[in-house]
Nucleic acid binder design. Structure first.
Lengths: 218, 218
DNA sequence: TTATATTATTAGGTATACCTAATTAATGGA
DNA sequence: TCCATTAATTAGGTATACCTAATAATATAA
């Protein structure tokens, strides 16, 4: 059994690894957790003693299979709770993350599995991230940024890169959510903005930075 | 904002008060929390500084209106989560308490209210305890022990006094839950056992100790 | 009333998870 | 290569929430 704090470290290290960072340094972890590299080193020692990860200055931090399993189980709970908060309690996209940050640490035998079943075994969370199954497997989908989409084609929104309230609230205003269909009408080379059609009725222009933060698939 | 620990103290003190204990001593609190009186005194000082309670050796601990409000809000969340776990996730009576002990400390603006709405504004939790409303009010019902019920009359199960897995699992076996109707057929003076009819089809005998732990109302 | 328990309290200590400041190591550029 | 910058680490400190052991206060009983 891990503490909230230990679980957060494992989760962050797992995410940094997923992001393709080869060497996960104390500084990178401290930045992600918004704390101090000295604190991180304390914790890396502790998690090392618990055989949840291995840390070497030259190679950075690497989760053991055990540590990875804990990280995935925390991520599973986080994403399931996000689905619950959005679909059942009526929270908005930009609110579910903070609550799930707390709920992800609730421990009880088959809580995640019961929640999973109650929600109908969802495959993705409200940000379009895949939900690990009970055995830790994740479905992967060919996702890319709206920026890389082609003119004339229609895509489905599967998630966001930026999860700031500002971005999420803007999406809500545009009535863009998970599953929304977006057709690329035109790309404006001048400023790399795009003219898109949202669900066949709302034609609008979106900026480059917008297109760089919306995940879609064909 | 309070820590998990502070909330647990406030909750316990509130409950001891509800149980009619006039002088809530460090020893009584330590017993309820399964910790040390010395630790309790530390915390009483801290909660006193935060104006959540007042402690005097002669009068014991007394919650301030503020401390009481926090305690009630924790209790509200606890009981709402219990309903959720039982009704939505399919947990059993004897399991919901432990999970709710963790969930009750999750903080977020209107989480309790949204959960309350999702559950259809339940008035009682699975143990028959009233759920405080958003403004801290609790419905009270004329509840008593099955032991005090009269022969020939029919009652509705509203809760249990003993919440041990042993008792709760026995209830499950007898198919007795919240709302189950029980008719008193006969009282046996010899051992103070009772012959009851459960929901018009199951006639059985229950012991005195059983009848002392099942809460019913007319 | 006085001796004996029982409670309450204080003093001092532990583990967790942070912190700052100082030091050491590593890296990058001129 | 050497200096400067950045990163890693160590040392020592803080707050939380516990603990044990010793002492003080109170209650109970002979």
């Amino acid at each position: 059994m891990q503490t909230f704090s230990e679980e957060n470290y494992l989760k962050i290290i797992y995410n940094l690894d997923k992001q393709g960072i080869k060497k996960i340094t104390p500084t990178a972890i401290a930045e992600a957790l918004d704390n101090n590299p000295a604190s991180v080193i304390d914790m890396l020692k502790k998690l090392g003693d618990k055989k949840l990860l291995a840390y070497e200055k030259s190679k950075g931090a690497k989760l053991t299979p055990n540590g990875k399993a804990v990280a995935i189980s925390v991520i599973r709970k986080h994403r399931l709770w996000e689905v619950f908060l959005l679909e059942k309690l009526g929270y908005e996209w930009d609110q579910v993350h903070d609550i799930a940050e707390q709920l992800e640490h609730i421990h009880y035998a088959d809580l995640a599995d019961k929640l999973d079943k109650f929600l109908g075994f969802p495959k993705y969370d409200p940000h379009g991230d895949p939900i690990p199954s009970a055995n830790g497997e994740m479905v992967s989908m060919n996702r890319f940024m709206l920026e890389e989409a082609n003119v004339g084609k229609t895509y489905k929104v599967v998630g966001v890169k930026d999860t700031s309230p500002e971005f999420l609230q803007y999406l809500k205003k545009l009535e863009i959510g998970i599953g929304t269909k977006i057709t690329i009408k035109e790309k404006i080379p001048f400023d790399n903005s795009m003219i898109i059609m949202i669900e066949k009725n709302m034609r609008t222009s979106v900026s480059k930075i917008f297109a760089q933060n919306l995940l879609v698939h064909e």
